[in-house]
Structures are given as C-alpha cells and as structure tokens.
Design a protein around this nucleic acid. Structure first.
Length: 433
RNA sequence: CGGGGAGUAGCGCAGCCUGGUAGCGCACCUGGUUUGGGACCAGGGGGUCGAAGGUUCGAAUCCUUUCUCCCCGACCA
C-alpha cells in the first residue's frame, strides 16, 4: 500500500480525551476515532489489526474444534425474559423498541440465543460435544466507559459455547478451550497468565480469567514464574491450572502456596474469561438431549470469551515505547514500513518502487511511505505507527548502493544493499508470522 | 450512580475574573527554497465561542436551563 493513497491520519499532539498510553497512541496513530463515549470508529490501520487478532483467534478456535457461526447484534427480549436476565441485567443492557413497539435489545452476550439455536436442532447425545462460536459486536452500557477501546461500551468479542452430556465431558471441552486460549495469546506475542476466577453474574462453578502482562496493566498479579515460559506445543491444562496465580485482593502476602523465589509479581490486563456453568441456561431455556438409554438430559454448558477489540489496546499497553507502538509481527497492520526519504530523487524512487513491488509479490505487507513530507516527519510517523520493520531509503546511503533495515523494537539497524535487504526481510518475517 | 473538571478553527490551547466587532501553535491551501530525525521564507483560507433562554446600548466573557465529553470512586470482556 502506498501511504500517499492510504488513509492513515496521524496526529502530532496527544488528544485531550485520552488518558492511558494505548488510547493516546491509538488516536495519534490514526487507528480509531471516538464516535461517542465508549464507541469507536475503526480507521484502516486499526481495522487491520483488529482483523488480524480476530483471525488468529478464529484459527485457534477452529483448531480446537469449535465451529463458527454468526448471531445478530440485535436480539428480541423474549429469550431474555425466559432466562430471567431481562430483569437481572439492569441498566447495562441497551433496550430498544422496534416500530411495532416490540422489546428488543443490543446483545451484551449470547447465552440465550445460542441455547435457543441448540435446542432447536440438537436432540441426541450423538451430536455432542458441540462447541459453537462467533465474533460479534456487543454492547454493554457501562456506567463509566474508559481507557479507549479497552473498556468501550461497544466492543468486539469472540464468544463460544460448549454443549456436553455430562460435567466430566464438559470439563474436557473446558480444558480444550483453556489450551486454545493460551495458544492464542502466545501467538500474538503476549504472555498470558491464567487465574482461577470468581464466576460472577454468569454463574457456575468453574472459571478462569486470562490476563496478559503489561507494565501499565490495571491489576497486580502474583503467580508462579513457570507461567511466564510456556511452550505453545506443550500446553497441559490440568497442570497449568494447578499453578499458583492470584490477583492482589486475593493474594495473601504472608501465606501463599509456593516458594518465594518462584513467585512473580506483575501488572496484567484481562483479555479473556472462560466459564463452566453446568445446566443453568439449558434448564431455563429447555436444552435437552436424549442419552443412550433414551432419557432426556439437560446439557452441560460452558462459555468462553475473548475481548478482540480490547486486545488491540492491551497489545499496545504491552508493546510500546516513547516513540509509539511496537506491533508484534503476527498482529501488525503491515510487516514493513518502506520509507522513501527523498521522493524528489529518481534513484530513490526507483529503488523504493522495485523493492516494494518485489516484497508485495512475496505476500509481504508493505506500507510504502512515498509521501512528500520531510524526512523527520516520515520517520517519526512510522515510529508512531509501529510497523515491526522499517526500510529506510535515502540519497546518502544509496550512493554506495545501501539502504537501512531497522527493527522497530530494538531500534537496531543495518546497512544492506537492496537485494540483501529483500532476502533478509523475507526470511525474518516468514519465520515469525 | 456519587464527587470533580472541560466544551473557543481539523487538533492542542489562550482569552472569561474586570462585558466593547475573537487570538496563538500545529495542521491545511499557493509559490519558492530545502532534504539522513517532527524543515524554512512569503502569502492565504477557515470559528453563528456546545445549545437554548435571560441581563445589557453591547455577551466567548455575567445569570439560568440543558446537552456532550473527560477524570476519581463502586462494576466489568
């Protein structure tokens, strides 16, 4: 993509409305624009990241055997009245009426709808286990939205729902999702810490939340340091669940079950939550199957959520410096910023265009900064946007047929000729996607 | 929902106390000069001062009402 043809409005100054670093950077780098409190428009760069995150989550869900569907944002109140939550949810639920005065709502979650879908079609234990998911916008009318997309009222969430014949089988589904979650966050370059959690208003008996480490995180986590060094190929859910991990209001300084030198303390941001809640909804909404003896049995359910839009902010909280964002390659909006410092110079243009075309042919995503701005403006804009690799092409080095390849994270750079740079980056990026 | 703060050009802000025809920086447009870390010179465009009402000869400024946004707290993916 040529920057001059793109739409990526960057800002020099910090927006008055933003408080935390990820929010500031998201606005300055032109990822989102606030539409109203806790509601955002996603601009091209932000949308690319959002889609990349969504896709990683999707791939890991599919690998774990979940099946994708798509449920609507607007739901009828009927099912919610049946489940009892139309009353319980209170003012957080955005209630609306259609033209004939029918009670509708903008879904804050989808247990009711999914259970209804399930009970409409599934009648036999032979069809279990079943695990359905979708990635859809939700709306929760928070008392106080804040922190940009990290705590929006409208937010994109992947949520899925597992159906099993028994509690034992439900635990197997639960552990599959647990494993998928760890793998998902590791793939994004994050360090996930899983914590046993209170089940909260969704109700039930087993629940874990997933936090990712970030210096600016809201909660303080105390956990076994083993949790920091997980091999995505060898995730053992039972073992991981046995490790110590607690948030600060649960952790007891004087009494915790591991050695002091095993204990790590870090800040975290919650990005996922999983629940096993048994037959709570199947009971209320009548989700039964027949078992092998022909007897009707309530299905055991679990639900699993990942805050996709929140992750965009959380990843920035985890990866940034004072120059801007530092995207991990798997979620980055582009792989390479190709910065042409001298768009007036024929040689610079020629080398830039060639390299750009060759990289694009190899399916590398390149943002080619061909804008007619001064060098400093372009360099700082690209640092702000945070694309993981930069190729800097200027008149000075080109006299010796050299261009600069810079790592956005370490800020280390090397001078290579264009062919070497091409080969280096192809290898580098393909090994990390 | 309780407490606090803010709405003036696209963005960031000054002006308000003490009423008198609205200003700065950035961005934007035109021309020129520049080019290895947010360029420079010259010229230019852009605001019913959040909205409604009131006081006054006169309101961005004083008064009333209202809307919106932000921050702190209680709650959450």
């Amino acid at each position: 993509m040529k920057f001059s043809n793109y739409f990526s409005p960057t800002l020099n100054e910090n927006p008055a409305e933003a408080e935390i670093i990820s929010h500031k950077l998201m606005i300055r780098a032109g990822l989102v624009k606030q539409a109203s409190a806790g509601i955002y428009s996603w601009l091209p760069l932000g949308l690319k990241v959002l889609k990349n995150i969504e896709q990683i989550v999707r791939e890991e869900q599919n690998k774990a055997g979940a099946i994708e569907i798509l449920m609507p944002t607007i739901q009828s109140a009927d099912l919610w009245i049946k489940s009892g939550r139309y009353k319980d949810y209170g003012k957080e639920m955005l209630r609306i009426q259609d033209r004939s005065g029918r009670e509708m709502l903008y879904g804050p979650t989808n247990e009711e709808l999914i259970t209804d879908i399930f009970q409409s079609y599934v009648n036999s234990y032979k069809d279990l286990p079943l695990n359905l998911y979708h990635t859809q916008w939700k709306f929760r009318d928070e008392v106080r939205p804040r922190f940009g997309v990290m705590r929006g009222r409208e937010f994109l969430m992947k949520d899925n729902y597992s159906f099993d014949l028994s509690q034992e089988e439900a635990k197997i589904s639960y552990d599959k999702m647990f494993t998928a979650y760890i793998k998902t966050f590791l793939r994004m370059g994050l360090t996930p810490i899983s914590l046993r959690a209170d089940t909260g208003p969704i109700g039930g008996d087993l629940s874990h939340e997933f936090q990712i480490l970030a210096k600016t995180g809201e909660s303080t986590l105390y956990y076994d340091k083993e949790l920091e060094t997980l091999d995505p190929e060898k995730i053992e859910p039972e073992k991981l669940q046995s490790y110590y991990a607690a948030v600060d209001d649960i952790h007891d300084e004087k009494n915790y079950p591991i050695n002091q030198d095993q204990l790590k303390i870090s800040k975290g941001i919650e990005v996922g939550h999983i629940f096993y809640f048994g037959t709570k909804y199947s009971e209320k909404l009548g989700a039964y199957v027949q078992d092998n003896k022909g007897e009707k049995r309530l299905v055991h359910m679990g639900s699993y959520g990942i805050g996709i839009s929140r992750l965009v902010g959380a990843i920035i909280e985890a990866f940034h410096d004072d120059r801007g964002i530092i995207w991990p390659i798997p979620v980055a909006p582009f792989h390479i910023s190709l910065i042409n410092l001298m768009t007036e110079d024929d040689k610079c243009n020629e080398v830039s265009e060639n390299l750009y075309n060759n990289l694009v042919k190899k399916n590398i995503e390149v943002l080619y900064d061909d804008r007619k701005f001064s060098m400093g403006k372009k360099l700082s804009d690209n640092d702000l946007i945070g694309i993981p690799y930069q190729i800097i092409i200027g008149k000075r080095d080109l006299k010796e047929n050299l261009i600069e390849v810079k790592d956005r994270k370490t800020y280390e750079s090397q001078k290579l000729n264009p062919d070497q740079a091409f080969n280096f980056l192809i290898n580098e990026i393909n090994s990390k996607i």
